[in-house]
Design a binder for these strands. Structure first.
Lengths: 324, 324
DNA sequence: TACAGTTACGGACCGCGTAAGCATA
DNA sequence: TATGCTTACGCGGTCCGTAACTGTA
């Protein structure tokens, strides 16, 4: 049993049992992989893959068990390499983040700016996507961090740590009737068409449900994927915008009025997720602290050492999560 | 980074930083190990060992971290090999048990007999010793199972699972005055010298303390390490014996009377311990069930998957532990 | 006829063991 | 002088890439 045989094995599984694809991913030749897998199967004394003719079609039950142990071994090997990188030059390395539009556009810029100033030699990679795309990247271990809101169930392998709480703002043009109301009611808002996020209208605790529960009719003028688009159409007078409070920018949005909607809409929490059991580079702890000062190195380590989401929850239960 | 380099590394640590000893343990040459360690250090970019002249004297902080990750990798590798063995011939293999005299002499014989009948091709190794010796064997991962009573704190890396509860018996010759008392009091017993286990007189909840709490004087005639010796001296009329209930044998001990002492002395629990995170062979699950039917395969797996003793405790909290 | 995997082969590399060298107690 | 680690070197095994072959959609 060799480490690279195990690496081949899990890469084949990750590539949908396509050996050629695995070979490309590993920058090596396909025959080499085939042979090593055969040797491994020979050594273990049982088939890892079921084959139909020449093609690999399924993982056997025994094979599945091997793959799981192998994956854990490779993860530890990766941890040792990260250790090595940290001891060689703790200021050099790379860091990849998958996140949603709101975080990437409004929350992260000042964080990234500070981080870059402190660690100029760290290569940064930012991937923007939907929750599902972020989950895929995280599941494939293609990113170091995931930063998003809600949807805990999409990220079963990560330790999700709360960064900050935030609420919704109602945004209207300066001359809009609502601009003169300090604490509008749902009923007052329902008199105008709504412009908000697509995902604010799906699932439980959606805007639609909220209005319905109050016996109000909700007229949706437009659903968008990000606050920039929403603000644009609010400016055009299409309706009343409901956006994340972080998305209202004092300077750029002077022509709009943001009204605190925390008395109307449920609070949300932005979390940062790291694959459990991972070893973080020194600068990664610093990055987390820039996003969420309450997440100390010690706390993060304890959370990452937990073996399931429930354990992580227990560790983080008592920490104070600031408002944005 | 190669698997065998990591194996060399942890073996050196296990052998007190003596490379020559590690080479002997690994059945290979000392220069080979030295070289591989140097290569590993070169690859990682930092020293794992501190050296004074030519001798290895300490593990560096970074090295310690590497050793820990490496140990986990090797454990997983071992798990894969065990998987392999199980799929090749699930009835063949080996199994080693470290246990105390009472368990080895009175509890395990019928268990082992059944096990041998079911799995004749499994090599059995039984190591008898004190709690401390058992703990050492378990810590060095030299045995598959530890079976003992009390002293949880000696076994931090094991998952300790309760097998059965047992109490103490008072044993006297058939013609002894106490032989005619069904439910003797501590006071009645204190009128005779006591013959019992060495360890029954040490630590908290010891016999001495028990008698003292009741304002009684305890006269110790003899302390022994096992019940066979105790019974022998009880036969000689040296005093009243206090032994584990399992140690009274209906057939062999007809000349003695055993009086249930559960109303006088605290109850004990015999547990079986397995290193957490280990993969067990099929027959090992069967062995556990022979010792303790309530420990199902599923339950054992859940216990072994926990990451600390507290987690194991939580998993096993609700199971019913039979009396012997 | 593409595509995926196997078989065959030569070259490069690498780990092991032996033997000799060096430092320390 | 014994112990323990390093250096040097040759052998054997192994892993890789290329190329040719086989089976399948």
């Amino acid at each position: 049993m060799k480490l690279h045989q195990l690496r081949y094995l899990v890469t084949i599984v990750q590539n949908g049992l396509n050996i050629t694809a695995a070979a490309r991913a590993l920058h090596t030749s396909q025959p080499g992989i085939s042979k090593q897998i055969r040797l491994l199967e020979e050594e273990l004394g049982f088939q890892i893959f079921e084959r139909e003719g020449r093609n690999v079609t399924r993982v056997t039950a025994a094979g599945q068990a091997v793959v799981e142990h192998a994956a854990r071994m490779l993860e530890e090997a990766e941890n040792i390499r990260r250790l090595s990188a940290d001891f060689q030059d703790e200021n050099r390395g790379s860091m990849s983040i998958a996140t949603t539009h709101t975080q990437a556009r409004y929350v992260l810029p000042p964080v990234i700016k500070q981080f870059r100033a402190r660690y100029p030699k760290v290569d940064l990679h930012l991937h923007q996507g939907t929750s599902e795309q972020i989950a895929d990247l995280a599941a494939a271990d293609r990113v170091d961090f995931s930063i998003a809101t809600g949807s805990h169930e999409l990220f079963p392998t990560l330790a999700l740590m709360p960064c900050f709480r935030w609420h919704r703002d109602i945004v209207v043009p300066r001359d809009h009737p609502l601009a003169f109301v300090t604490k509008p009611t749902l009923k007052q808002i329902s008199e105008y068409p709504i412009v908000s996020y697509v995902f604010s209208f799906t699932g439980r605790s959606s805007l639609s449900e909220l209005f319905e529960r109050h016996g109000l009719k909700l007229e949706v003028a437009l659903t968008a994927r990000d606050a920039d688009v929403i603000k644009t159409y609010v400016r055009l007078g299409l309706g009343v915008g409901i956006i994340a409070s972080m998305a209202y920018e004092e300077n750029e949005d002077r022509d709009l009025v943001a009204i605190d909607g925390s008395h109307l809409f449920p609070e949300s929490v932005t979390w940062i997720g790291v694959r459990r059991g991972r070893l973080l580079r020194g600068y990664m702890y610093e990055f987390i602290r820039l996003v969420a000062p309450q997440l100390t190195r010690k706390l993060v380590n304890r959370a990452l050492a937990e073996k399931d989401a429930a354990g992580v929850g227990a560790v983080l239960e008592s920490i104070k999560v600031p408002s944005y």
